[in-house]
Every structure is written in structure tokens, then in C-alpha cells.
Design a protein around this nucleic acid. Structure first.
Lengths: 148, 148
DNA sequence: ATAATATAATAGTCAAAGATAGTCAAAGCT
DNA sequence: AGCTTTGACTATCTTTGACTATTATATTAT
């Protein structure tokens, strides 16, 4: 087991029970007695979106590296939802999906609100009642495809 | 968390329930044990118009820094657009408004993309061609109302 | 009394120093 | 051959302080 693997273990262990963790690059490097850039190496090879992680950081005083988990990679997850959606959707089903997308951080509160309103009964009031759920599903799918 | 973040929190907390607050730069600096210009730094990086704040100040005896929230102008602006929109909208007109809303930072790129796709010809393909522009206008108006 | 001037009390600007993190390519391992 | 380790260089954000600008108030001159 090499150092990068050890650091990977350490971080995975730290994030196991959490949704995210915040690291100080320099502190971590000191702990493992390596150069700071090795932390970047570990992160860029092992905490990538494809493996279910999302990384943010900030430089300067009080800087940090924040690693968040995303259970599935975003695009896989979206493709999955798109497949699951049938040709019709009621407003309440839309809202269920929106909450899920919110939970996985694929959209934020504001996006969810916009989509929910756009697909509400009120917005689609002029569409034939018979076609409404189909139009709603179409719009929703198109939005999701665009988010991939 | 660095000092600037702490000061930001403090100010945001103070303005949370108010339309505006007035600070004494030197007093605040003393409270946080920093140089006065750090207050300027915090204000100029975190209380900018793009983030919904408007700052005025006055020097000399009895000087102050007044920070106001500008949610009001935003809602006025939205109401104005809603009034201007007729009962029909083409896709290209939607995009023109989206760019405007983007310019005023009422929505961000991602929101704009979502709305644009939701109201595209493709998404609304199943709606009667005759009714499509009306449905589009309805959805758009509902979204805007929701953003107020 | 009024106008002009000085003084004190604020706030603003800007650039340097400090504190982090990022990049990239060379060297080292397996 | 490909992954890991290292370090020099870069980018970004924060903190500090010297210098400047503005406003209110006090003092002085007319």
C-alpha cells in the first residue's frame, strides 16, 4: 500500500458517515509527511465525479478543500431517471423526482421551484386535460437531458 | 472559517429581518479586532449588487455604512416583465427575456438553460401548434411570478 | 452674525505581505 | 508502461497599514 492509498483510505474513512468533509491541504500533507500537491494527486485520481465525489475548494486565509459524496455519478443518475419516466407524469410525480434530484445535489432549491411551477397544473392549464400529463413528461425529460 | 467569513455572517445575521442596517466601520472593526479596511474588504467582496445588496456610506462625524437589501427592485422588475408579456410568446422571445433576466442576475445560467429547454419547441411538441405560444407564455409567466 | 478656516472624526483606496490551494512536469517506483 | 512522489512556480483569497477623501464641528476673522 502506497502513501496515496493510505491518504485515500483516511479520507474515505473520514467521509464514511458524513455527507461531506472539509480538509486543510497543508495540514493533511503535514500529517502524512508529504508535499501538499500529493493531496491534489490523491483527490484528482480517487475523488472524481465518476466515483461519486464532488470537490470544492478555496485558497487564501482560511482556505479548505471540501469533498462531498454523490451516491451515483450525476449523469448515470439522470439517465436512469429519464429511462424510468414514462410518457405521462402527474404534477405530484414531478415533485417526487424533484425532491430526489435535490437530495443528490443535481439541482438546487431555486431550480426545483422553477421546474415545479413550470409543470404545475396552473401553467399547463390551457393544454387539453387528456394531453397534459404527456406534455409534462416531455418537458421534464427535456430538462433532464439538458442537465446531463 | 476566516475573519472575513465571520464578519459576513454577523452582518447577514443583522440584516436578516431588516430592509437595511447601519454600521459604524470603526466600531465593527474594534469588535472583531481588525483594521477598519477589513470591513471594506468584506463589504466589497460579499455585499455586492450581484448578491442582492446595495451599500451607501458617509464619512466624517456621525459617519456610517448603510447596507440595504435590494430584493425590492428585483420584484418590481419581475412584475414589470410579467405585465409586458402578452398572452403568446415564441421561443425566441423567451430567450430574449432570459438574457435580460440573466443580465439583472435574477436567474443564473443554469436556470436560464432549464427554462429555455422547458419552453423549447421540442418540449412543447405535443401541444397544438395553434396553442403552443399561449402555453409557453403561461408557463413563463408562472415561473416569473414564482421568482418574485 | 456671518464667513472663512482649522480640527476632529469618520470612511475609502490601494498595494504589499501573508496564507492557502492548484498546476505541471520531472524524477522515482513497481 | 504506468502509477506515485516531489517541488518549483502560479493563482487566489485574506489581512494589514499607510495614505487620502469627506463631513461635522469648533474656532477665528470680518
Amino acid at each position: 500500500m502506497n502513501l496515496s492509498d493510505v491518504i485515500e483510505e483516511y479520507i474515505k474513512d473520514a467521509i464514511r458517515e458524513e455527507q461531506y468533509i472539509e480538509l486543510k491541504r497543508s495540514e493533511l500533507a503535514q500529517e502524512f509527511n508529504c508535499v501538499p500537491s500529493q493531496i491534489n494527486y490523491v483527490i484528482s485520481t480517487r475523488f472524481i465525479p465518476e466515483l461519486g465525489f464532488y470537490v470544492e475548494s478555496r485558497r487564501g486565509g482560511g482556505g479548505y478543500i471540501k469533498i462531498s459524496r454523490i451516491s451515483h455519478s450525476k449523469s448515470d443518475y439522470l439517465k436512469n431517471i429519464i429511462c424510468k419516466i414514462g410518457s405521462k407524469m402527474s404534477q405530484s410525480v414531478v415533485d417526487i423526482y424533484l425532491r430526489e434530484l435535490l437530495g443528490y445535489n443535481i439541482i438546487d432549491e431555486k431550480d426545483a421551484a422553477i421546474i415545479s411551477v413550470a409543470l404545475s397544473e396552473k401553467s399547463l392549464g390551457q393544454v387539453d386535460k387528456l394531453k397534459r400529463d404527456q406534455v409534462r413528461a416531455d418537458i421534464f425529460k427535456n430538462i433532464l437531458v439538458n442537465l446531463i
